[in-house]
């Protein structure tokens, strides 16, 4: 099976970290700890007793069919969605309910959205400097120097004075990543970052994410990009119907999924 062959060596390069097994995660210092989280949308039980621990520097990719609750889980971690029971801690700190404490915690959690959500009335540079200046109280000069460095890192240096609408989707998403990185977050959340992109722009964003993963950033990525999951993930979390069904290394998950739902899901997306 060609799929399996690619799984063994997805990039053609010698696989790095051949065994980032489950055990590896638990030996790492925990960064995000989700315990017994439940959430309903009306009658719909969208998150059922979610338990998940993500270690410092770990990259976790969350997969699953639409409606499985993976985006909701991602948004719950920085409390863009409230949850009813359970707890979430980030770097040992429990997520506060509202107010200044929550704002401060969110500053440590980068979030990249499906629809980019760059501030439409601000230039690219202003988008990246806003958080550092208002939240981290950095000087304008310092924030701009850092912003230009980050824009260079994501490859949109020449666009700094333009407005978001003047950039392509891929460029906007890379700026959104730079905007999050400018806050020097402890963990980055990606909520389907490439789903709204034209196909030819997906890779430029995934490349930035892959290099970010290699740089040791703690990342939780909700995506349908199986290539990225294989290439960059330490662990794959498979969700269905609001539950975590399976947690495995990418190699294990893609070659020998245990649950029927995972087999079914992979069958649907990998068969073509």
């Amino acid at each position: 099976m060609t799929e399996a062959a690619r799984d063994q060596n997805p990039t053609g390069r010698p696989a790095e970290g051949d065994e980032p097994p489950l055990a590896a995660a638990s030996t790492k210092e925990p960064m995000v700890v989700i315990t017994g989280v439940n959430k309903h949308f009306g009658d719909l039980h969208v998150l059922r007793d979610i338990d998940l621990t993500v270690g410092r520097g770990e990259v976790v990719v969350v997969l699953g069919p639409s409606g499985s609750g993976k985006s909701t889980l991602c948004r719950t971690i920085n409390r863009l969605e409230a949850y009813e029971s359970g707890s979430i801690t980030i770097d040992g700190k429990t997520l506060p309910d509202e107010g200044k404490a929550l704002a401060q915690l969110r500053a440590d959690v980068g979030m990249v959205f499906q629809s980019f959500n760059l501030f439409a009335h601000k230039t690219i540079l202003e988008n990246v400097t806003l958080g550092p200046m208002k939240v981290r109280k950095k000087s304008k000069a310092e924030a701009e120097a850092k912003a230009r460095e980050l824009l260079a890192r994501v490859g949109v240096t020449t666009q700094a004075d333009k407005y978001p609408a003047q950039l392509s989707g891929g460029q906007q998403q890379r700026v959104a990543i730079a905007r999050s990185l400018a806050m020097e977050p402890k963990v980055m959340l990606f909520d389907e970052p490439t789903s709204a992109l034209d196909p030819e722009m997906v890779n430029e964003v995934l490349d930035v994410m892959t290099s970010l993963a290699r740089s040791g950033m703690t990342m939780i990525v909700v995506t349908h990009e199986m290539g990225f999951a294989r290439r960059a993930a330490d662990r794959v979390v498979f969700m269905a119907d609001g539950e975590i069904v399976e947690v495995a290394t990418p190699a294990t998950f893609f070659t020998s999924p245990r649950s029927n739902r995972a087999k079914d899901f992979l069958g649907k997306i990998l068969s073509h």
Partner: peptide
């Protein structure tokens, strides 16, 4: 949401 997620009050 983006404003809140970069830590703005």
């Amino acid at each position: 949401e983006a404003a809140r997620s970069i830590g703005l009050t």
